[in-house]
Design a protein around this nucleic acid. Sequence first.
DNA 1: GACTTTATATACCGTTCGGTATAGAGTTAA
DNA 2: TTAACTCTATACCGAACGGTATATAAAGTC
Lengths: 200, 200
Amino acid sequence: MNNLTDNKENILNCALSLFSKKGYEAVSVQEIVNSAKITKPTLYYYYKSKEGVYSKLLIKYYTQLNSLIEKVSHYNANPDSYFEDIYPILVNVTTSYFTFAKENPLFYRIVLSNQYMPKSSSVYEIMKKYHYIQHDLLLKMFYSMGEIHTNLKNKEKQLTFSFLGIVNTYIALFLSDEVSTLNCEKAKELVHQFMHGIYA
Amino acid sequence: MNNLTDNKENILNCALSLFSKKGYEAVSVQEIVNSAKITKPTLYYYYKSKEGVYSKLLIKYYTQLNSLIEKVSHYNANPDSYFEDIYPILVNVTTSYFTFAKENPLFYRIVLSNQYMPKSSSVYEIMKKYHYIQHDLLLKMFYSMGEIHTNLKNKEKQLTFSFLGIVNTYIALFLSDEVSTLNCEKAKELVHQFMHGIYA
DNA sequence: GACTTTATATACCGTTCGGTATAGAGTTAA
DNA sequence: TTAACTCTATACCGAACGGTATATAAAGTC
């Protein structure tokens, strides 16, 4: 037969939609195969388990996201204008997150839902490594900045979490239709708030 | 018999611990009753369903949290010192969150896990009203501030989400043992960052 | 002591869970 | 023509799910 790629991809897409709307545990394999209009053995032919489907989803999308962030998170100090060299890189990183979230809203809902999952949950086990990569990229970025901007030194971890927290807050608002736009202007607003506080 | 309060409370405590560690969907009624060393009919005698147990948990703890925040979120403008009157109230609110999270770490893990739950998930339905109350209290606080501090005006919603996002980021770090303290100093640090950015 | 209420367990309900043994249909290659 | 391989469905597995009918034991009430 030749529906291989059709079904294989379709299973992933249907699973993505369901996991995004209800969460990993709340979705049954039966729901996925119903949604994909196939039967269970077909799903198990392509993926070895429910967890396998979820895992494949995470690999597929996190790979994109992480490589996107990797590209824009390298910090090159500009000694003549300290202030001006942190600002644009943070805007770039933020914009990358925004763009990715807008293009993959179903997946990013999963990212958000999993953000504060307890470490003892099964979902945490599956996603921790991708989450770690992302976190590590930002951490390295802030470490580079800390070497130049000594007032940031020793706060790198805190800054990483805060920054990611604010970015995800903005994205969550967008995905919940609480705010309608998530463009470059919004990214600049976010970074400005992050750097200079609410009196921005 | 007389074990009423014993068992009734014990069920809640065991459920709290399990829900906190694994998430609502991943916990079965059987697990709860095993943990509480009772049988299923006993649980169903006190609570009408699994959802009923969860709901009761949320009521119990959210009532405490919300009344705590209610007490400290009233803004009284101090026209002689605009700057000094926003700072202390935000510190108080933050400290209240910190105190509550430290005293009820198992419950606050649930709050965090549910923070970005999709609206179509069953858990969201159960908790949305309590979450809303909390959100509304902060929103009103920022509206009061916006009336005096015109540079905050029309950003109240954004500020509410950002502030809560940062507070929860700090608490999440603490509950994941990434930072060891969550005291008044930390609250001041948070508020300072919120108001003046990362160059604090 | 008889009756009611409260609180608990045994044993079970139908349904759904994640997962699979098996067979057959369509395609490819000899 | 046949053999092998790829893909999908029927039909099923044992286990666990959320939930309950029923019995009963203890305690309070008359």
